[in-house]
């Protein structure tokens, strides 16, 4: 544990997530504006196709362009390591990272690491996201709840994520509960903040009309207020997902025997830079995939509600 704590100390600035949360405010309110007046959005299409931009206008073309930078980086990595610019402890070759992956797959460990990490992220994201939506709705709509809870929630938000870890371990031991709870805390705040801010910018004329036709409470929330802030909810959810992966690594770095965060620390002790890089690449790939999946749902939801 002592080595793990040392790791924690050195990594805490990166895993804190303070900057990610700080951006939530402006992000949320701008999205709220567009949610309240969807008519203001420019009509899609109607752009004259330019010869140079033809690639940009097809999905395949955009995927192709998106692959350019990773391929260049991979090539630079390959040639610089092959030329002996770095020692293999500093930076192993892409091929050895690939071999490390193959070896872990063969031993049946890699899928366990990926599986447990994904499970923790999804559970924490779901719990934190739902709570964020519920509490954000309550505090965003009720002036009493706002006055009562906002200062406290704001204070809790100011607590760096890693400060919770000792307490969570004390209360819930080193198991799944403490990890999922930590990730839920991380996912909660972006959703809470965006929903809370966006609900104050819902078109009051629409709300009044709905109230005049007898809509109140939960029905008013689900019929008018939440649909009006769908774009903000999704920007909150995407931030929350990023936070969930961030907090996953925080949780796994400290106390775990499985998962991608464990793979990171374990590789560090054993001097396996190849596995360390593998873990980082996997975090990037799965983080991107999960974000893209939420993005697909987001596009559908915005077409439906905005």
């Amino acid at each position: 544990m002592s080595a793990a704590e040392e790791t924690q100390g050195r990594r805490s600035p990166q895993v804190n997530g303070g900057t990610a949360q700080a951006t939530v405010g402006s992000y949320g309110s701008s999205a709220a504006g567009s949610g309240a007046s969807p008519e203001a959005a420019p009509a899609p299409g109607g752009k004259p196709p330019r010869a140079g931009a033809r690639l940009l206008n097809t999905t395949g073309g955009r995927v192709l362009l998106g692959l350019v930078v990773p391929v260049v980086v991979l090539a630079a990595w390959h040639f610089s390591t092959a030329a002996g610019v770095f020692t293999s402890v500093q930076l192993p070759t892409p091929a050895s990272v690939w071999n490390a992956a193959a070896e872990l797959i063969q031993r049946g460990e890699l899928w366990n690491h990926i599986g447990i990490s994904t499970q923790r992220v999804l559970l924490g994201f779901a719990i934190g996201g739902l709570l964020g939506l519920a509490v954000g709705s309550l505090v965003g709509l009720s002036r009493v709840a706002d006055a009562l809870f906002s200062p406290t929630i704001g204070a809790f938000r100011a607590v760096p994520s890693l400060a919770w870890v000792p307490l969570l371990i004390l209360w819930m031991q080193i198991g799944e509960d403490s990890k999922v709870t930590l990730i839920s805390i991380g996912a909660f705040f972006p959703v809470f903040t965006t929903v809370y801010l966006a609900l104050r910018h819902v078109d009051q004329n629409l709300v009044e009309a709905a109230r005049a036709f007898g809509l109140r409470g939960v029905r008013l929330l689900t019929t008018v207020q939440l649909p009006a802030v769908v774009p903000s909810i999704f920007s909150g959810l995407r931030l929350a997902l990023a936070q969930a992966w961030l907090f996953l690594v925080a949780a796994e770095l400290i106390a775990s025997s499985m998962g991608l965060g464990f793979l990171l620390t374990d590789s560090q002790y054993n001097g396996r830079t190849d596995r360390l890089i593998l873990a980082i690449v996997l975090l990037a790939v799965f983080g991107k995939i999960s974000d893209a999946l939420v993005g697909v749902v987001e596009r559908w939801a915005i077409a439906r509600w905005a």
Binding site: P38, A209, P227, A306
Partner: peptide, 27 residues
């Protein structure tokens, strides 16, 4: 809010994400 009266505002105030039919049904 009275249930025996109904209000039509100066602006239509329809829910932009619902069809005309669902907006009417709201009443």
């Amino acid at each position: 809010l009275s249930e025996t009266s109904a209000f039509a505002f100066q602006e239509p105030r329809l829910l932009p994400w619902q069809t005309i039919r669902r907006n009417v049904a709201l009443g």
